[in-house]
Design a protein around this nucleic acid. Structure first.
Length: 706
DNA sequence: GCCCCCGCCACGCGT
DNA sequence: TGGCGGGGGC
């Protein structure tokens, strides 16, 4: 039995009890948002609302898992019919049931960013654009924006900095891209959201079914939902026809506009206005008491975020008065910075009050974590990096996965191309070109082309030489063989995958690829063993009801961060973006330099100059900059991760693109009230006293300005 | 026709 | 640091 009154404060209680009608919860950093959501679900279950009527949508897999675990603990129930997942995972679940109505087959492949880029390359080759003036990545962004309705061809942005609009020629590439996906029976991440909408809009009866099933919908991190995500859940919440009035919908969104840091991925602050319009008479509840941080940290965070103009008014407060000062260091280089963090951790560990997992080290970018990793390894400090190149993106893992994906869906050209000559089978460019030409002219997949050009009746001439045909035939035989074995019986997928690695002799391939360094080959092989181990664990998990090959592939397609392994007893290293929703007793914000926070690329993309005002007056004259405000929110998120103690480091020099660049401290540091900060010289400053002195003075001047 | 090696380029966040 | 494209060698 839940004891809500004892466990929650008044606004929290109000939020938990408001289960009927539309609700908007504005939850400041550290205000017990997760607590409210989990209690709310537990309270619903206790009130007799059936599990299958509840849909809770989150932003990350991690949040979904955490929410589910905590609801399970609170309610003491098995949660077989409760749906707690990310928007994308919901899309997969939906499409698994309904995708056939759009002419796809159920064994569709899910393309990640890498697959997507490979396909775009392919489509560009086919079109006659020889020298596109944007790269594949930018083109992927463009396609994504078009697909999700962020912009149309007429108002699409131009290549960064040029001010030019994209040429209509890319529209053909885009169409070719989508046609190819369909032929390959594949969907990209955007399709996971747009296809369900298409299906639901076409089929009123189906929409009615979903609308009537999910009577209670909750959306976490609402400030980071995109337009397309908004459309998906509001469609289900409002139903169609007579149900179109939003006042009766039991839909609850939880968010904090100050923590909106994903606009580049389509997150749209206007969703809030849409929500207020689409669901009139909503109850608005503000959670403003912070239970996480000391007032020092909160004041610093408030000082920073108050410089933003576009925000919903709120005032976070805490009754934990005082707190340790925020300490600011400016190491000479990124290796000094890493050494500094290591020594601080060592010192604090000696005090005995902290464990390694009390520390969070936050960076702006993934690539910046390298130097800290080196230092941690050297000093034997256990650590865990989340984010970055995920385990599943590693070459050797991707190779094995591409075989599995091809086995699941032989029309998946992108994964066929990846696996067909890895390890080498003597199938090169010319063969691929022949197959590809045939596939294109017959509007079919490479696999189909292969079958039709290789396995010809006697006497029919083939455009492929006998030797190549034999190679292709062997390859197809291998895939078909495993197809029968892996799809036939939903058992021992792990063992069968090991079998596959043996049969393609991947080990010999690794040895030959890394003939100069056998250690690397061993390391990569160990990764494959780990991968197989992960399949094994997953298969043997009793909570897992669907253990087939498709289920496994769908699962890992949506996991980008490496979520396996034990977190306890390890220092947490991650990007600021990845730290959202987490908290640590001690936080280090590393690389708090101008050009990093705020990031130059972020400002460039919006066609803005890097922000380095010489004085406070100039600062106020700077026009409102959306990207600058988002960068400030990012810094705000970083600060508010800390419970007791915050360290900020800003390097004097940093290695960038092979050269050493002079750095300046982040302009946001000036926005922290100076009385909360202690500025320190570091030992490394001795090496270059003049420069260190200048930097120190600049820092002080900046802090004195406010 | 395939493969290997070298030089070049980029390095923002993530479902 | 590594991924990729081009040119020369086999």
């Amino acid at each position: 039995m839940l004891n809500l009154k004892e466990e929650l404060n008044d606004p929290q209680l109000q939020a938990v009890r408001a289960i009927h009608g539309p609700v908007l919860i504005i939850a400041g950093a550290g205000s017990g948002k997760t607590r409210v959501i989990t209690y709310r679900i537990a309270h619903m279950l206790e009130s007799g609302i059936p599990q299958h009527s509840i849909l809770a949508l989150t932003f990350t897999n991690k949040a979904a898992r955490e929410m589910e675990t905590r609801v399970k603990e609170l309610s003491g129930k098995k949660l077989q019919a409760l749906t707690v997942c990310t928007f994308h995972a919901f899309g997969v679940k939906f499409l698994k049931e309904e995708i056939e109505s759009l002419g796809y087959r159920k064994n569709f492949s899910i393309y990640d960013e890498v697959d997507k880029e490979a396909l775009i390359k392919d489509c560009l080759r086919e079109s006659r654009i020889a020298n596109p003036d944007i790269n594949y990545y930018e083109m992927g962004q463009l396609f994504s924006g078009i697909k999700t309705g962020r912009y149309t061809w007429a108002d699409s942005p131009g290549a960064a900095g040029t001010g030019a609009r994209y040429d209509a020629a890319y529209e053909n590439v885009y169409n070719e891209y989508n046609r190819s996906l369909k032929i390959f029976n594949a969907v990209d991440f955007d399709d996971l959201l747009t296809l369900p909408i298409t299906i639901l809009e076409q089929n009123t009866a189906l929409l009615k079914k979903y609308h009537e099933r999910f009577r209670y919908i909750m959306v976490d991190e609402f400030q980071d939902t995109s337009l397309i995500q908004y459309r998906l859940f509001s469609l289900i919440a409002r139903g169609s026809g007579a149900d179109l009035i939003g006042t009766q919908a039991n839909v609850c969104v939880v968010g904090d506009d100050d923590q909106s840091i994903y606009s580049w991925r389509g997150a749209n602050y206007r969703n809030l206005a849409c929500f207020e319009k689409d669901f009139p008479d909503l109850a608005e509840i503000k959670l403003e008491q912070n239970y996480r941080s000391t007032t020092t940290i909160l004041e610093a965070a408030n000082g920073v975020i108050s410089h933003n103009t576009m925000r919903k008014e709120k005032s976070l407060w805490s009754d934990q008065s005082g707190g340790k000062s925020i300490e600011l260091f400016y190491p000479g280089s990124e290796s000094d910075e890493a050494d500094f963090i290591v020594s601080q951790i060592n010192t604090l560990m000696m005090g005995g009050t902290f464990a390694y997992d009390s520390f969070g080290v936050l960076f702006r970018t993934n690539s910046m974590t390298r130097s800290i990793e080196e230092s941690f390894l050297e000093s034997n400090i256990p650590y865990k990096v989340s984010g970055g190149t995920s385990f599943f993106q590693r070459k050797e893992i991707k190779d094995i996965i591409s075989y599995l994906k091809l086995i699941a869906n032989t029309h998946d050209d992108i994964n066929l191309l990846r696996s067909i000559n890895t390890p080498r089978r003597g199938i090169g460019k010319t063969t691929i070109q022949t197959l590809s030409d045939f596939a294109h002219s017959h509007k079919t997949s490479l696999w189909d082309a292969m079958e039709r050009l290789c396995r010809l009746p006697e006497g029919v001439p083939s455009p492929l030489p006998q030797k190549t045909r034999a190679e292709l035939d062997t390859f197809m035989g291998l895939i078909e063989d495993f197809r029968v074995r892996m799809l036939g019986e939903k058992k021992d997928l792990a063992a069968k995958t090991r079998n596959l690695a043996d049969q393609i002799d991947y080990w010999s391939y690794l040895i030959s690829e890394h003939s100069k360094n056998e250690k690397i080959a061993r390391w990569k092989f160990a990764n494959i063993e780990y991968f197989i181990g992960a399949i094994d664990q997953w298969e043997k998990n009793p909570d897992n009801t669907d253990t087939g090959l498709f289920a496994w592939l769908n699962r890992i397609s949506l996991i980008t961060r490496d979520e396996g392994g034990e977190d306890r007893g390890k220092v947490n290293v991650m990007t600021i973006h990845a730290s959202k929703g987490l908290e640590f007793p001690v936080v280090f914000i590393a690389g708090a330099e101008d050009g990093i926070i705020p990031h130059t690329r972020s400002l460039e993309a919006a066609g803005e100059e890097p922000f380095t005002p010489a004085s406070a007056e100039e600062d106020t004259q700077t026009p409102v900059s959306l990207s600058m405000e988002e960068e400030r929110r990012l810094f705000y998120v970083a600060i508010t991760r800390a419970r007791d103690k915050l360290f900020i480091t800003s390097c004097q020099k940093r290695r960038r693109l092979q050269e050493l660049v002079e750095c300046r401290p982040s302009p946001f540091l000036e926005e922290i009230p100076p009385h909360l900060i202690e500025v320190h010289q570091t030992e490394s400053a001795v090496e270059n006293p003049k420069q260190a002195e200048d930097y120190f003075n600049l820092m002080r001047k900046r802090l004195a300005v406010t």
